[in-house]
Design a protein around this nucleic acid. Sequence first.
DNA 1: TCTGGGGTCCTAGGACCC
DNA 2: TCTGGGGTCCTAGGACCC
Length: 441
Amino acid sequence: MIMFGLIDCNNFYASCERVFNPALKKLPVVVLSNNDGCVIARSNEAKQLGIPMGAPAFKFRHIFEQNNIQVFSSNYALYGDMSNRVMTILATFTPEIEIYSIDEAFLKFKGFENNFNLTEYGNLIRYTVTRNTGIPISVGIAPTKALAKVANKVAKKFPDRTRHVYIIDTDDKRIKALKWLKIEDVWGIGYRYAKRLMAMNINNAYQFSKLSQEWVKKHMSVVGLRLHKELNGESCLDLEDIAPKKNIATTRSFDVDYIDYEKIKERVITFAVTCAEKLRKQKSCCNRILIFIHTNGFRENEPQYSKNIVLQLPYATNSGIELAKFAVIGLEKIFIKGFRYKKAGVLVMDFTPESSLQVNLFENTNPRHKPLMDAVDKINRQLGVKKLKLASQDQGRTWKMRQEKLSPRYTTNINEIITINCDYVFSLQTEQRRPNTSEPF
DNA sequence: TCTGGGGTCCTAGGACCC
DNA sequence: TCTGGGGTCCTAGGACCC
């Protein structure tokens, strides 16, 4: 039988911070979003202290201090590099792998059943990744992707019994796991569906799996139906190829409110230029661009304004100069003076491959932009930072992202590489194990 | 004072075409 | 006075993921 594995890095961003700073090992750690806005990753210790996902940092500041919680700004240079290392190792365990997110991958085990004990294999995967990267992972293995997700939850929740590796390979184990899994924790059941299902007294994954296919199809579309079948052991979801993106977005909240049109214009131009870079990276051109701006929705007493506009471009392009021009045209149409703007963004959509650009007799992208953009990319790549900008972009970088607690880019910048203090002794990172009284596994 | 930033897919309904 | 049937494309909105 074909089996799927789901490998998930435990508390990934928090674990990355610990790898190069072992002093953090037993301490609660949280990582904040861009602008140091809210909590997006927590170590187990921080979870136990009751720090919820998405907690606004400013509201929890005193709790951080009281409990000696170690707080970090997002360090995507570090997390991206650590992710690559983990994925590279995982790819040595099977020819078929799908990188599902920065900290998760599905592995497909086809033809393994006669040659491998998959539980032992899972243990080997976990051991190897942790030894070679310092990142602890959990491994779930099952006959479908959705069940592999379930198995992974079990592995993560019951480390004492599972040693972070769990396999669902019998119907008994499947049913037991589904009965244990709360409906809101099922992959594909979000907040809204969970609420509706609980109103019908469907409280766990097993009860959901017993609903009729007709009901599920009618109320949750074919997506819900696929999930339903997968939980019942029928594999509907195969590994997916890394497809080129269909949309690319660059959006940011500002550190303070912006009132001035010129300032917002500069940000929007920069977002458009960044989108153009991302487009060139995947060798696409876009045919439409969306620009949005909005005020701070959390300030309920202040006047609110939120607007977006989609422009159909006269020709497909991935030139930063062109996209910046169109972005400004869009912004002019939606900007209203007098509001306090908190966020803006640029989305590019409707892609054409760079290689198959249609020749438009009258209107087309300036042919000189292509070599120009290539040169810009090359220089920026070589210098490692954005040295080349449009004149309309902020030269002095007067704007800034709040990043007060940024750790070094240990693995991607030679100037920030770790220096070893002999007082530290590196050892394999193991998660704190705690007794659990109510565990069924 | 301070509340992230990306993505995907599906469906319904309207415009428009023959 | 009668007023089809089928198709495509587009958009908005709703759901979800990490």
